[in-house]
């Protein structure tokens, strides 16, 4: 029920909303919006969860992969691949870099933001569930969009960290609750890379545990990211270092 409502709401907000420029806002205010918006996707500062990515082609499930994600309060994350093809591979996302550990070579290599978008899964989407550490508002106008009696505020954020996956994101949040509604992700060239709609399962209406990703030009295909098994937990600092993240 909630799933459908949010999907309809999100699509309407993206495509058909009436647009108004809202009053001026401060950096601190927008930062607080991001912090609140993050709380819907990542309900703890430090913890772990399981993520699955399922690719749908022509609305039929094509393939699926799963990940174990650990996050800390500084916005660092460690992702462990659980599927056979990539089983044992790990990704570390820190403030300044992203590292990929390939078990066959016993080696961690530094990867570029573009590399993390290649292949079957976008490591950047899986490893980052918060915007507050990686992005900041670029002072562009905050636009209000209205659809179905719901008002969204939409604004652009730019990468504040070198390790951020996308150079800029156009974000739309529900004006009252600041719950993320949808987002457009852009590369440095200005190319629209991906679009996302944020959804909730019926049993967790106050949390965003599902994200639908769509790529421009691939209308018959989408990817669903689903997060489960959330657990608040403190991690050892060393597992978020390039030497320690390959440890068990």
């Amino acid at each position: 029920m909630h799933y459908s409502v949010y999907l309809v709401l999100a699509l309407l907000t993206t495509q058909a909303g009436a647009q108004n420029t809202a009053p001026e806002y401060s950096q601190a205010q927008v930062k607080n919006w991001l912090i609140k918006a993050d709380s819907y996707r990542q309900p703890f500062k430090s913890g772990e969860l399981k993520t699955s990515l399922t690719v749908y082609k022509e609305n039929k499930q094509a393939e699926s992969s799963s990940f174990f994600v650990q996050l800390n309060e500084s916005g660092d994350s460690r992702v462990t691949m659980l599927d056979t093809r990539s089983k044992g591979q790990k990704v570390l996302l820190t403030e300044s870099a992203m590292w990929l550990y390939i078990p066959r070579t016993r080696k961690a290599i530094r990867i570029t933001p573009m590399q993390r978008l290649m292949g079957q899964a976008s490591y950047g989407d899986v490893s980052s569930l918060s915007w507050q550490h990686e992005y900041q508002w670029d002072n562009s106008p905050v636009i209000e969009k209205q659809s179905n009696n719901t008002i969204s505020i939409c604004f652009r954020v730019q990468a504040a960290r070198k390790s951020a996956t996308y150079r800029s994101i156009n974000l739309c949040l529900d004006k009252d609750s600041l719950r993320p509604v949808n987002a457009d992700f852009y590369l440095a060239s200005g190319k629209l890379m991906k679009q996302a709609v944020y959804l909730s399962s019926s049993d967790t209406p106050d949390m965003i545990d599902q994200t639908k990703f769509m790529q421009p030009g691939k209308s018959n295909q989408h990817t669903m990211m689903k997060n489960t098994d959330y657990l608040e937990k403190q991690h050892k600092k060393s597992i978020f270092t390039r030497q320690g993240f390959i440890k068990k």
Binding site: R110, I111, T112, P113, M114, L187, A188
Partner: peptide, 12 residues
């Protein structure tokens, strides 16, 4: 050393 510049370049 390894260094990443922008979206696409890595130097090592």
């Amino acid at each position: 050393f390894t260094y990443v510049n922008g979206e696409s370049w890595e130097l090592h």
